[in-house]
Design a protein around this nucleic acid. Structure first.
Length: 442
RNA sequence: GGAGAGAUGGCCGAGUGGUCGAAGGCGCUCCCCUGCUAAGGGAGUAUAGGCUCAAAAGGCUUAUCGAGGGUUCGAAUCCCUCUCUCUCCGCCA
């Protein structure tokens, strides 16, 4: 969420910045609502002040044993009028809030202005893609060839975009998550967390998935033992249901830990990591990556979250990105780091680095991690603050990144370390997690 | 699933219709005293808004005592609904 003060004082500037992201800020609607809000708020509060003063008088008069009926008459008419004014103000505030929740974050000044993927800027590259003296297979052929990947069975169980792995492949998948967690906790100073995989609407709103990207989430209805009172008045437009949502990323629970908190300066920075499943309905990407396990409804990720003092957040972004890169380096997987342009960034991000791993079968670098500084955008939504040097509450900055997406890392290993005989070599750092196994063989 | 108790400021905790944004304590900040330390004395210390002001300071004002609704001129306090926490029983990985 953007600072409403900024919108009030400099809507034009904000609109121009948002335009670079391809977002059209409804300036006219906003200012109309603001005018209305100001009018209603002033008059409503004036009425409230009058009522409060009168009530105080009545109290005093009663204490002195005086007759209060003339005073009562004075305020008698105020009630209904006030109630209606309050209701109208509420509606306008809700509309403003709704509008505000739809607006993406402002891009940081260092972010290249662009109109799509082609305008992302390569920042650096690590490793050299291996040259093969045999025809490379993609991860599906490799996995199925080994008899360890069964997408048909997954489709039977659940549908498309699910996967079933067995034997050494399933173990390699598990090994990867363990390896990543160990590196981040032992070498990068993260605290490991175990978190809920279902989150409420408030949390999803905090990190920015709701209300705008509801269709990308799996919503889990709560069983209610209420009879057929579906017309109960609590379904007003502004209010949220109490359904739960399968988390689309570990960012949601990890970041929302500071929701509605004022943390002490001494506890910063907070660095958390967790291995979680992620669930995405992938609405709107029906044609993309239909083959294989690149894009799934369910996948595993090791998430990195930093919660920091605003003055450090861009240093933290560099560090966090470096932590994710370290995993690829240790695994020996070639990658490049891309600075995303304005239109390619996620809703909540002010600046994002994507890490893309080399996939030989595609002959391309593919996203395996996305590291973002959200500045105060999420913190404002979830009222996450710290007590600053002067003892005043101030919004935190939040960052998140994948360190890494486990399924895609598995794909990269299969493809980059495949052998002519159809087997796959296991990276040295993972061998201890595989009981010393050095290869997956048919 | 059954029975009961509770939710108040950074923390603990008092408060059953008016002068309560809220006693008291802890913590924290500033000041004083004490030739060190310890102790002591005083003052201050919630959050989010609105209006005013060129801005800062200040002033005026609104809301907030788990959440939402209701009663009332007036609600932390009374009523209703919900959420969460704790205790006991049952069930369960």
């Amino acid at each position: 969420m953007l600072d409403i003060q900024l919108l009030r004082s400099d809507a034009g500037h904000v609109a121009r910045l948002l335009a670079t992201r391809g977002y059209v800020f409804p300036e006219a609607e906003f200012s109309a609502l603001e005018v209305e809000r100001k009018r209603l708020q002033t008059s409503t509060q004036e009425m409230q002040a009058r009522r409060n003063a009168a009530s105080k008088q009545i109290g005093n008069a009663k204490a002195r044993g005086e007759n209060v009926s003339p005073l009562l008459q004075e305020v008698a008419s105020l009630g209904d009028e006030l109630k209606e004014a309050e209701a109208r103000l509420d509606r306008v505030q809700d509309a403003l809030q709704h509008l505000l929740l739809q607006i993406p974050n402002l891009p940081h000044s260092g972010v290249p202005v662009g109109s799509g993927e082609v305008d992302n800027r390569e920042v650096r590259r690590w490793g050299t893609p291996r040259s093969f003296d045999f025809e490379v297979k993609d991860h599906v052929s490799i996995g199925e060839g080994l008899g360890l990947l069964d997408l048909q069975a997954a489709a039977k169980l659940s549908g498309s975009r699910f996967s079933l792995m067995k034997g050494g492949l399933a173990r390699l998948h598990r090994a990867l998550a363990q390896f990543m967690l160990d590196i981040h906790t032992r070498e990068h100073g993260y605290e490991e967390a175990y978190v809920p995989y279902l989150a409420n609407a408030e949390s999803l709103r905090g990190t920015g998935q709701l209300p705008k990207f509801k269709e990308d989430l799996f919503e889990v209805p709560r069983k209610r033992n209420e009879p057929e009172t579906s017309l109960s008045g609590n379904s007003e437009p502004g209010s949220d249901n109490d359904n739960l949502y399968l988390i689309p990323t570990g960012e949601v629970p990890l970041t929302n830990i500071v929701q509605d908190e004022i943390v002490g300066l001494e506890s910063l920075p907070i660095r958390l990591t967790a291995h979680t499943p992620c669930f995405r309905s992938e609405a709107g990407s029906y044609g993309r990556d239909t083959r294989g396990i690149i894009r799934q409804h369910q996948f595993e990720k090791v998430e990195l979250v930093h919660i920091v003092h605003p003055s450090n957040s861009y240093d933290a972004l560099e560090e966090l990105t470096g932590h994710a890169e370290k995993i690829l380096q240790k695994l020996g997987l070639p990658y490049r780091v891309m600075l995303l342009c304005t239109t390619d960034m996620g809703f909540a991000a002010a600046k994002t680095y994507d890490i893309e791993v080399w996939l030989p079968a595609q002959g391309a670098y593919r996203e395996i991690s996305s590291c973002s500084n959200c500045e105060a955008f999420q913190a404002r939504r979830m009222r996450a603050r710290f007590r600053n040097e002067k003892g005043k509450p101030e919004l935190l900055h939040t960052l998140n990144g994948s360190g890494l997406a486990v399924g895609r890392t598995l794909v990269a290993i299969l493809e980059n370390f495949q052998n002519a005989d159809g087997g796959v070599s296991i990276p040295e750092v993972l061998q201890p997690y595989m009981g010393g196994l050095r290869q997956l063989k048919a």
